[in-house]
Amino acid sequence: MSTEQNGSGLSLFRAGSGGGRGPSAYALFNPPPVDKVAVEERAAALATRSIKKAAKVAGLKLAVSMMDLTTLEGKDTPGKVRQLCQKAMRPLDSDPSIGPCAAICVYPNLVPVAKATLAGSTVKVASVATAFPSGQSPLSIKLDDTRRAVELGADEIDMVIDRGAMLTGDYAKVFDEIAATKEACGAAHLKVILETGELGSYDVVRRASDLAIAAGADFIKTSTGKIQPAATLPVTLVMLEAIRDYYYASGRRIGMKPAGGVRTAKQSLQYLVLLRETLGDAWLTPDLFRFGASALLNDVLMQLEKERTGAYQASEDFSKD
């Protein structure tokens, strides 16, 4: 194993001489190791950045524009989804300059409702697919799930990886499923959920990130929101570093989506600081960074109003959708 490749972000796999399917067809590159303590230290240090005044307002507005407003519940209904869509298009009734959000994220069945409600707006419809959230179904079902969601109008697909395969070392299976899902997406953008809370270590997160990127992910995403811990600053940093190495190697920009657990305006600014100081200005756009959240938006709006008016806000003044 060559240390030369370490950190250069070159692809994880090379086709073997056999050309067939299965592990023998791949040569595996070691992803760079991740030092847990140092990553957490770096993330914690960046979290102490003090973002004030104009920078705070700009950051919070950016955060709103990066939000994938999400509802992924068994009790989701067209009514609920319509209300969420309204909120995404016009987050704050009193200030049209805020928003719109980047997307609505729903289950496939609710894609048509969202699509219809959002018609004419810039807000995208994202659908989870591939037997979300566990991913524990046959590949054919996952691919059908994906194709149906795209047919129903989804602009973006949030897939889950097979964590079981990841943890048993069957990286080829994980890779192939992502590659196949990407193909099934057609023109739709693919976000690959690693479900980092189930991967056990940053090393596996890094490996899964590299693998997802190599297999064709447009975005990599931390979590389904169904497992704790979901998004954290350090796990996001590890994934941003994978994106950075891939960019160094290829010149191609992959997007990042922390999802689950980002609830406060302050947290959203911490993520943006992490993003800005890891990947730089080019990533400060909804095209390359999203927040997967539901409760976050109102806290961001409250803080924006606080900055505008100078008064601390009451939660009842903001719509609950």
């Binding site: 004030k52 920078a55 100081e277 730089g280």
Partner: peptide
């Protein structure tokens, strides 16, 4: 593209004095 890609740390989001 290996050598050409460069990150840009400009003024897209400048922190205010704190």
């Amino acid at each position: 593209k290996r050598s050409s890609a460069a990150l840009d740390f400009g003024a897209a989001w400048e922190y205010a004095p704190a």
